[in-house]
């Protein structure tokens, strides 16, 4: 990570190197209506929720891009669409210029592409099959992609991977329940790395862990990125963690990106009123006695989101235009007031 040196340069990938991951106009609409039969009986209309709306971003090679947001922001939905676990309603995801699930792409190429993408999940108690040994869990991608077929070679590879994440190679004969939460997340990381991916989507990888263990995992992830040149899409609700890990950050509010900027710039000079409110709201260990103005209101129900700019009912700078028009993302900020220079 080049954090601390030239954050701006790291944040904007140099023009000659194309980004590794390109996500454009990503959209997800969930149908949350009652069953067809019940709708017919009660005459209720279909209810659709737009969980993710026109989300566009790029991630450069070796970069960590973070999506941060509160509940209902759609950050996990984006993650699951990017890796292909969830069908997209609209939009495009390309890795290395190739669309991940485009039927036009040859099957072999799609499989090769799949190998480059991995995911680390939030809950290490749910992401490891409780009835499998650690060795079998870690080896599953290796076996599935046919990277290695000789059982000796697989065993050796599993041992190396476990050592890489700070566990003992002999741990491969144990079961997940024999490990603590932090150790399980290490196993999940070893598994994610086993087929040598280029791009890892991390969905709240430390939010189920205690802080001292969280530090271990965050440090490990940063080390692995340095050693293996990994690219991360980092999903989190924790601003301090995001600040620590990310080169660039996208702030999501009710399914829309409201601000996308380099990490240092975003925290030093937040521009969107929501980003400001969010950063203000984080309890500060260093200056705890400062009485601050607590944030206003709560996140509206995504089934019935506000018109125009989704943030307008909570925004201290709201004007009439905000209630009607959806602001476009200009210079990394989606706000009418920022765009016309009034805040």
């Amino acid at each position: 990570m080049s954090e601390g040196e030239t954050p701006i340069a790291a944040a904007v990938p140099p023009a000659e190197v194309p980004p590794l991951v390109r996500v454009s106009d990503l959209r997800k609409v969930f149908d949350v209506s009652a069953s067809a039969l019940e709708r017919m009986m009660s005459g209720a209309p279909r209810r659709l929720v737009t969980a993710v709306d026109h989300v566009t971003f790029e991630i450069g090679r070796g970069e960590t891009f973070a999506l941060v947001g509160e509940s209902g922001s759609g950050k996990s939905t984006v993650a699951r669409m990017v890796v292909g676990l969830l069908e997209r309603s609209a939009g495009r995801v390309t890795i290395d210029g190739t669309a991940v699930d485009d039927p036009a792409t040859p099957r072999a190429e799609r499989q090769a592409l799949r190998r480059k993408i991995q995911m680390i999940f939030q809950d290490p108690y749910a992401s490891l099959n409780p009835r499998w040994t650690v060795g079998r869990i870690v080896a599953e991608p290796v076996v599935t992609f046919g990277v290695l077929t000789d059982s000796r070679a697989i065993e050796r590879r599993v041992g190396e991977l476990l050592a890489l994440v700070g566990l003992a190679p002999a741990d491969r004969v144990k079961y997940p329940h024999q490990f603590s939460g932090g150790q399980r997340q290490r196993i999940a990381i070893a598994r994610a790395l086993s087929a040598e991916p280029a791009f890892i989507v991390c969905d709240e990888p430390t939010s189920a862990l205690d802080v001292s263990v969280q530090a271990q995992i965050l440090n490990l992830m940063a080390d692995l990125q340095d050693r293996l040149g990994l690219t991360y899409l980092f999903i989190s609700h924790n601003l301090a963690v995001v600040r620590h890990m990310a080169d660039r950050i996208g702030v999501l509010y009710l399914g829309r990106l409201v601000e996308v900027r380099p990490a240092r710039a975003l925290f030093d000079d937040p521009r969107h009123p929501y980003t400001r409110m969010l950063i203000e709201a984080v309890p500060d260990l260093e200056a705890p006695s400062v009485v601050r103005d607590p944030a206003r209101g709560e996140i509206p129900n995504p089934i019935d989101p506000p018109t125009g700019c989704h943030f307008h009912p909570r925004c201290p700078h709201v004007v009439e235009r905000c209630r009607r028009e959806v602001p476009a993302l200009l210079d990394g900020v989606a706000c009418h007031r920022v765009a016309d220079g009034s805040i």
Partner: peptide
Amino acid sequence: AGLMGSIPSLRSDHARLRQIPGSM
């Protein structure tokens, strides 16, 4: 001290967090 050091901060840029080895 270890606990305090392992909390990521909004202000300072540490390349690495202080970590306590092992777990409870």
